[in-house]
Design a protein around this nucleic acid. Sequence first.
DNA 1: TGGCAACCATACGCGACCGTATTGAATCGG
DNA 2: CCGATTCAATACGGTCGCGTATGGTTGCCA
Lengths: 197, 197
Amino acid sequence: MAPISKKPRANPTLSREAWVLAATNLLAREGLQAVAVEPLALALGVTKGSFYWHFKSRNELIQAVLEAWEQDQSADVATRYGGIPDPHRRLRVLLFAAFEDVENGKLFAALTVSAQDSRVEPALRRATERRLALGLEAFQALGLSEEEARQRALLAYAAYTGYFQLLRTTPEAVEAVTDLSGYVHRLADALVPEPPT
Amino acid sequence: MAPISKKPRANPTLSREAWVLAATNLLAREGLQAVAVEPLALALGVTKGSFYWHFKSRNELIQAVLEAWEQDQSADVATRYGGIPDPHRRLRVLLFAAFEDVENGKLFAALTVSAQDSRVEPALRRATERRLALGLEAFQALGLSEEEARQRALLAYAAYTGYFQLLRTTPEAVEAVTDLSGYVHRLADALVPEPPT
DNA sequence: TGGCAACCATACGCGACCGTATTGAATCGG
DNA sequence: CCGATTCAATACGGTCGCGTATGGTTGCCA
């Protein structure tokens, strides 16, 4: 038998990151109001006592979750977006990448739900601004006017937001459309003018 | 001086409908969790005592709000949609009407936020199903295949949902697109094939 | 082996909101 | 004018989650 010491301490001890991770998952699945200290502790098999050793408050946990989210948002964009020279391809890659990352889409939808929250709001606003700016730029690179590019960017972003919102609220309705990539294709075709053959 | 009786009873007495109306407004502005009995009573200048005379519970109030909403959803569709013979016009009218009703759009967005709630979920699901079915039908009337019509309907609905969600979370971002009708035009043009000139 | 630091449990007080009871005041029909 | 009805205030007990205080284990290290 392995020399299990008296109390294996369930988990070899919880790290701050473990709390943040668990909180993020809970947030994505059940929303911000669900990321509460006591229930979270219960789910992790410990009590509040542990939590308040790692964090000053629930507020601090939420801030940490949001920071982590914003971090790998930027990271993602940087890697995926990279420098695709052809503007048509770049735009389509952008669209497909966005819709394919379902996990992130769900998390984003969950955050949108709590947009009223004073901690969530700034993070969400920054994300939205970045994304819309990226879209604007991408559409302008196609030769569209600013106004037109702005409209299409908003349209694309609304379609993104709405898609994951619907996926959250009424998954059955979305799944009735059997083919996601067909959906995104349609979106891309509707928004991205034909390349100059 | 007008013969003000001893206690003019602030408001000439609150009706059940007044509570429902106030709750609906609060819901649209601050979400479901904000429609709480005590705060609501405070806002109306009375106390819980009054509320629990008109309603059995908070739950009953919420049900009432949802029922009222579903009621005039159907009513709206019936009147607006009416029988426009030409499928192209019908579809465009539908789209414009949906985006123009900002009040209802905001209320819808607020409900979407609380889609997890066991009372909201069914109402929201029914609304979504009705709307998608309407969209499917309208696109099929243009001669599109079912699959294609389904995709476009979902796209249009996602754009609708997402638009009002963005309006809720980050109004500045939306307002940067100066022209709403331009936006909707773009959406319509992208989705509705040219009429057979 | 004593001691300190990391990690966690337990117990408590607090505020917000729900729902219940009970009482009070205005109003209307007879 | 009076009693019943309608509407509302007050006071209470209960739940859930936050945050604090305090004490208990474990592990490492001198």
